[in-house]
C-alpha cells in the first residue's frame, strides 16, 4: 500500500503577542501599506510555526494565515465592487467574520499588492526561513466561489445565482491569485468550501462541479488545487466530484467528524476520488484523540470514500477554533499517528 501523508491547512490560532501588535497596526491593512516591523513580527511567528511543521514531518501546510482576521476579508478587499460590512457568525461557530457586500460585477483591483499570494510571499520573505526548501509545501488560503457567494450579502441584481458569480470569481479573482503563485513558485492553493459540505445545499451539484472542472482545465497542472470542505459532509457533492474531476492535481478534503451521521446517509456504494484528504482529527474539540478511535473512524470512512492516488490525513476544519497549545498538540498527534500507520502498512506488506 502507498504511503499516507499528514497535512495541515487553514488559519492557525493567533498568538496573543500578534494580537497585541495588530491592535496597533491592523492585520487587514497588511496588503500594501504595512510597515517592515509588522511584516517582521508576523515573520517571527511564521518561522516558529513552519519549523515545527517541518519537524513533525508534514507533507504540506498553509502559511498559518496569520495575516487575516478571517479568510474572506483580505481577498474581498482586493476585489472591485465589494465593500465590507459588519460582523456575522461563521457557520455555527462562536466566531465572526466581516461580511463582504457584493455591489456589482466583480473583478480584481489593479495593483498586484492586493493579491493574497503576494501578501503571503511578502511575509514569508520577511521571515527567517529557507524559502527554496519550503515554498512547494506552503499553501495559499482562499475562500471558494460558493462559500464566498453564500457568506456575502449580494446587493446587486447583477448576480441572480451562485453560478454566474462563481464563474466571475474563479476567472477574475482566483485565476489572478494562481498566476501570481506560479511566478513565486507556490504549488498549493487551498480553496475553502465549507458551503459545498452542507447537506442542506442550495446548489445543483453537477452544475457547480462542472464549473469547477472547466476552471481547473485551464490551469497550469503544476499547481495543486485543494478543495476543502468542512463543518458537514455532502455525499452528493462528493459523488459529483468523483464523477467529473479526474485531474491528478486536484485534492478533495472531507470532514467526517462534524456531522458523523452524514457519512452513512444515502448511497451504500463506495465513492472514489483522485486524491483524498480525510479530516479525522477534530479541530473543534480540545480532546486529544486516541489512536484506536482514529483507526476505527478511518476504516469506516474508507469504506465509503477512497482515492485512486494519494490519501492524506488531517484535521477536519481549520485549527483556529482551538487554543494554540491544543492546536499544536493535535498536529503532533496527526504526525505521530500517520507515522505509526505507515509503519503498520509497511510491515503488513
Amino acid at each position: 500500500m502507498k504511503t499516507i501523508r499528514a497535512i495541515q491547512f487553514g488559519p492557525m490560532p493567533r498568538p496573543r503577542v500578534l494580537a497585541k501588535i495588530y491592535r496597533r497596526e491592523p492585520a487587514d491593512v497588511v496588503i500594501e501599506s504595512s510597515s517592515d516591523t509588522l511584516l517582521k513580527n508576523i515573520g517571527k511567528v511564521i518561522k516558529k510555526y513552519i519549523d515545527l511543521m517541518n519537524k513533525y514531518g508534514f507533507h504540506r501546510f498553509s502559511d498559518g494565515a496569520y495575516w487575516s482576521d478571517d479568510i474572506l476579508t483580505p481577498i474581498a478587499r482586493g476585489i472591485d465592487n465589494i465593500s465590507i460590512n459588519g460582523l456575522v457568525r461563521f457557520y455555527d461557530n462562536n466566531f465572526f467574520y466581516r461580511q463582504p457586500v457584493v455591489e456589482g460585477k466583480i473583478k480584481s483591483k489593479t495593483p498586484s499588492g492586493r493579491v493574497v499570494a503576494n501578501l503571503v510571499s511578502r511575509i514569508l520573505k520577511s521571515a527567517d526561513i529557507d524559502l527554496s526548501k519550503n515554498i512547494d509545501k506552503i499553501s495559499i488560503t482562499v475562500p471558494g466561489p460558493f462559500t464566498f457567494y453564500y457568506r456575502s450579502l449580494i446587493s446587486t441584481s447583477y448576480y441572480s445565482n451562485p453560478y454566474s458569480f462563481a464563474k466571475d470569481y474563479m476567472y477574475n479573482v482566483l485565476l489572478r491569485e494562481i498566476e501570481y503563485m506560479e511566478k513565486q513558485n507556490f504549488r498549493w492553493i487551498d480553496i475553502h468550501e465549507p458551503e459545498l459540505a452542507k447537506r442542506s445545499l442550495d446548489i445543483e451539484e453537477n452544475k457547480a462541479i462542472n464549473l469547477l472542472k472547466d476552471f481547473i482545465s485551464v490551469l497550469n497542472k503544476e499547481i495543486n488545487i485543494f478543495i476543502i470542505m468542512y463543518f458537514d459532509l455532502n455525499l452528493k457533492i462528493l459523488e459529483a466530484l468523483s464523477r467529473h474531476i479526474e485531474e491528478n492535481n486536484v485534492y478533495i478534503h472531507i470532514d467526517p467528524i462534524s456531522k458523523p451521521e452524514a457519512l452513512y446517509y444515502r448511497k451504500r456504494k463506495q465513492l472514489k476520488v483522485t486524491n483524498l484528504s480525510i479530516g479525522v482529527f477534530d479541530s473543534r474539540n480540545t480532546k486529544l484523540e486516541k489512536y484506536i478511535d482514529i483507526s476505527r473512524k478511518l476504516r469506516s470512512v474508507l469504506n465509503r470514500v477512497t482515492a485512486d492516488n494519494e490519501i492524506y490525513l488531517s484535521h477536519n476544519a481549520p485549527l483556529e477554533f482551538l487554543p494554540e497549545v491544543i492546536a499544536y498538540r493535535k498536529l503532533r498527534i496527526i504526525s505521530r499517528y500517520t507515522d505509526k500507520l505507515n509503519l503498520r502498512l509497511k510491515n503488513r506488506e
Binding site: P13, R14, R16, A19, R23, D69, F95, E320, P323, E324
Partner: peptide, 11 residues
C-alpha cells in the same frame, strides 16, 4: 487551555 479568537483581536 487558553484563549480562542471570536473576531478580530478579541479572544
Amino acid at each position: 487551555y487558553g484563549p480562542v479568537r471570536v473576531w478580530g483581536n478579541n479572544f
